Amino acid sequence: MIINNLKLIREKKKISQSELAALLEVSRQTINGIEKNKYNASLQLALKIAYYLNTPLEDIFQWQ
């Protein structure tokens, strides 16, 4: 199981879903879906999320 901390980290950094989506060149709905565990981010997208949030990938998506 993967624990998804994207919403928590994004909100801590005061970045909206729309802002993050624009940086990543995806839709806001994609970010929303990832945060609600409706969609799994591809490895490429997960790495981009970590880069733009300046946060280690394993802090955003944790295996349990």
Rank of each mutant, 00 (worst) to 15 (best):
Y52H: 13
S18T: 13
G33Q: 14
L23S: 10
I3Y: 10
L23Q: 11
Q64G: 13
K48A: 08
Q29D: 15
L8V: 14
N32V: 15
N37M: 09
Y39W: 11
Y39C: 15
E25A: 12
W63E: 04
L6I: 06
K7W: 05
S27V: 02
L53G: 01
A50R: 02
N5R: 08
Q44N: 12
N40G: 14
K7L: 08
E58Y: 13
I3V: 14
E11I: 11
Q64F: 05
Q64M: 07
K14C: 13
R10M: 05
R10F: 06
Q62E: 09
N54S: 12
K13S: 08
I60N: 02
L23N: 08
I31L: 13
Q17S: 06
N4Q: 03
N4V: 06
A46D: 02
K36C: 14
A41I: 15
E19D: 11
E35T: 03
D59N: 10
Y39N: 07
F61T: 01
L45K: 00
K38N: 09
V26A: 02
Q17M: 07
N4H: 04
Q64H: 12
N37W: 08
R10G: 02
I3W: 07
I60S: 01
S27G: 06
Q17N: 01
K36Q: 15
L24K: 00
F61M: 02
S42M: 02
E11L: 10
N37C: 13
A50G: 04
N37I: 02
K38T: 13
I34T: 03
R10I: 07
I31E: 01
A46R: 10
V26D: 00
E25G: 15
E11Q: 10
F61P: 00
I2R: 09
G33M: 15
L24R: 01
A22C: 13
F61E: 01
I49L: 07
S42G: 10
E35N: 03
L47S: 10
N54R: 09
R28K: 13
I9R: 02
A41P: 15
E25F: 10
A21Q: 00
E19V: 08
V26E: 04
I31Q: 00
K12Y: 09
Q62W: 09
S16W: 06
S42Y: 04
G33D: 15
L23M: 14
V26T: 07
W63S: 07
K13L: 13
K38E: 15
K38C: 14
Y51W: 10
N37A: 06
L24N: 00
L53Y: 03
A21W: 04
N4W: 08
K13T: 06
I2G: 05
S42V: 04
Q62A: 10
L23W: 14
T30M: 11
E19Q: 14
I15M: 15
N5M: 06
I60K: 00
Q44F: 09
A22E: 13
R28A: 14
K13N: 11
T30W: 08
A50C: 08
A22P: 00
K14E: 08
N5C: 11
K38I: 11
T30E: 08
L43Y: 14
N4R: 02
P56V: 03
Q64A: 14
E25N: 15
L6D: 02
L8P: 09
G33W: 10
N37E: 05
I2N: 07
Q17C: 04
I60D: 01
Y39D: 06
Q29R: 13
L47F: 11
G33F: 11
I31V: 12
P56T: 05
A46H: 04
L45D: 02
K12Q: 14
I31T: 01
A21E: 01
K38Y: 12
K48Q: 08
K12V: 08
K12C: 12
I60G: 03
Q64C: 12
K14T: 04
L24G: 01
I15T: 04
K12S: 14
L8K: 15
M1G: 08
I3A: 12
L45Y: 01
A21S: 06
L8T: 15
W63F: 10
I9T: 04
L47V: 13
K36L: 14
I2M: 11
K36T: 15
I3N: 10
L24D: 00
A41N: 01
Y39I: 15
L57T: 05
L23P: 00
K48T: 04
T55R: 04
L23T: 08
I2H: 07
N37F: 08
I31H: 01
I3K: 13
K48L: 07
N37R: 08
L53T: 01
S18I: 11
A46L: 12
I2E: 05
Q62P: 12
L6E: 00
D59C: 12
